Amino acid sequence: MASKSKIEKQKRNALMIAKYAEKRKELKEAGDYEALAKLPRSSSRTRLRRLCQLTGRPRGNYRKFQISRIMLRDMALDGLIPGMKKSSW
């Protein structure tokens, strides 16, 4: 499980990305890479990592549910995800 500080940092980065998105787009279209380099590093979308919304786990996440594979399985077994059930063959 990720620390709470990692999860909070991710939220701050998401806000910064939203704040600078329009400015970054304008600078890229103008081709002004020097001004683009002066913007904060964390304002780039590639710095954002997809984390589980429940545990903060960085790996094995499903985009559709925004949770990790482990939490998805637990929630499915508890019946919290409609239409999903455990399969065996």
Rank of each mutant, 00 (worst) to 15 (best):
A2S: 12
K4S: 05
S5V: 11
K6V: 08
I7G: 01
I7E: 01
I7L: 06
I7D: 00
E8D: 10
E8W: 03
E8G: 02
E8F: 05
K9D: 06
K9F: 02
R12G: 00
R12L: 12
A14K: 13
L15I: 04
I17K: 03
K19F: 05
Y20S: 02
E22Y: 10
K23H: 09
K23P: 01
R24C: 09
K25E: 13
K25T: 13
E26N: 07
E26K: 12
L27W: 00
K28H: 12
A30C: 07
A30G: 01
G31M: 13
Y33D: 05
E34A: 15
E34C: 04
E34H: 09
E34F: 09
A35F: 09
A37Q: 13
K38A: 14
K38D: 14
L39C: 11
P40M: 10
P40N: 06
R41Y: 04
S42I: 05
S42K: 06
S42W: 01
S43H: 05
S43Q: 09
S44W: 02
S44Q: 14
L48I: 14
R50M: 12
R50N: 12
L51V: 06
Q53H: 09
Q53K: 15
Q53I: 08
L54P: 00
L54H: 04
G56K: 04
G56C: 05
R57C: 09
P58G: 03
R59P: 00
R59Q: 09
G60I: 10
Y62A: 11
Y62K: 13
R63K: 15
K64H: 14
K64G: 03
I67W: 00
S68P: 00
R69D: 08
I70N: 06
I70M: 03
I70D: 13
M71Y: 01
R73D: 04
R73L: 11
D74N: 14
D74L: 12
A76G: 03
L77G: 03
D78T: 08
D78N: 14
G79Y: 07
L80C: 10
L80R: 14
L80Y: 08
I81T: 05
G83H: 11
G83C: 07
M84Q: 02
M84L: 15
M84H: 06
K85V: 08
K85P: 00
K85M: 03
K86D: 01
S88A: 09
